[in-house]
Simulated scan of single mutants.
Amino acid sequence: MTFSIVARCAQTGQFGMAISSSSPAVAARCAFARAGVGAASSQNITNPALGPMMLDAIATGATAPEAVARARDADGYADFRQLIAIDGAGRTAIHSGARALGIWTSAEGTDCASGGNLLANDQIPATMVKAFETATGSLGDRLIAAMQAGMAAGGEAGPVHSAGLLVVDKQAWPYAELRIDWLDDACPIEALARAWEVYRPQADDYVTRALNPGDAPSYGVPGDE
């Protein structure tokens, strides 16, 4: 009931992921990224503990394949899980358990990996990887492009209702963390794209406000001088 992509920007060192599902608030349970370490998704029949477990393993020297294997083996319910990770070298790994839901598949590319379950067809992850690899712009731009391509190729077997974008840069907190937790009759991926369009020009300013408020630009709100 989910399709997602994890990725790295080789130029900036940012990591991120984007995800969508028919379930509510999918990014709250499935999206994980850590500055200087990597990004990971724990999806299908979700165990949110596995995302931090994979990132902890990478942070202590494991490769993405090793991190995914450790989380898979530690969980005890590997047949139900779909795990995806990318590390600082751009290595990727995916585990899809035999009891993943519906049509499930995955694809790996340069600095990215995608996976999904309960899909409309088995080409969705490959389409998303290709879209990411050919898109231009920032990491967030390319992740959004991948999600839009996945949706255009069929997306989930039924309607999707939530989506999320998570990008980390150099700080311990997210560079961008945008979520559409539930929409009844509109596409959450397009709503997420619009949220990113609004947030993107201000993202660096929010970092400046945290690190050096004296250099922060105007807040652009009534009463701000």
Rank of each mutant, 00 (worst) to 15 (best):
M1A: 12
A7H: 10
C9V: 02
Q11H: 13
G13L: 07
I19C: 07
I19N: 06
S21C: 06
S22W: 03
S22F: 03
S23A: 15
P24F: 15
A25L: 04
A27E: 08
A31C: 13
A33L: 03
V37E: 05
G38Q: 08
A39D: 11
A40S: 11
A40G: 06
S42L: 01
I45T: 13
A49R: 15
P52A: 07
M54D: 03
L55T: 08
A57Y: 12
A59Q: 14
T60K: 12
G61L: 03
A64D: 08
E66Y: 06
A67S: 12
A67D: 08
V68P: 04
V68T: 09
A69H: 12
R70F: 14
R70A: 15
A71S: 12
R72H: 06
A74F: 03
D75P: 00
G76T: 05
G76S: 05
A78S: 15
D79G: 10
D79N: 12
A85M: 03
D87Y: 10
A93E: 03
I94W: 05
H95R: 02
H95P: 00
G97F: 02
A98I: 11
A100C: 15
L101V: 12
S106V: 01
E108C: 12
T110Y: 08
C112R: 10
A113I: 00
G115K: 02
G116A: 09
N117W: 01
L119T: 07
L119N: 05
L119Y: 07
N121W: 02
N121P: 02
I124P: 00
P125L: 11
A126Y: 02
A126S: 15
A126L: 07
A126G: 10
T127L: 01
T127M: 02
M128H: 05
V129G: 07
A131T: 07
A131R: 10
E133A: 07
E133P: 01
T136G: 13
L143E: 06
L143K: 06
A146R: 02
M147P: 00
M147Q: 13
M147F: 09
G150C: 04
G150L: 02
M151C: 12
G154W: 07
G155F: 04
G155A: 08
E156F: 03
P159F: 11
V160T: 14
G164S: 08
L165V: 06
K170W: 01
K170E: 10
K170M: 01
A172W: 10
A176W: 01
A176M: 11
A176R: 07
E177Q: 14
L183M: 14
I189W: 05
I189E: 04
A191F: 04
A191P: 01
R194N: 12
A195W: 02
W196Y: 14
E197H: 15
E197R: 13
Y199D: 08
P201A: 07
R209M: 11
N212V: 05
N212A: 14
G214W: 12
P217A: 14
P217Y: 03
Y219G: 14
V221D: 13
E225Y: 13
E225Q: 13
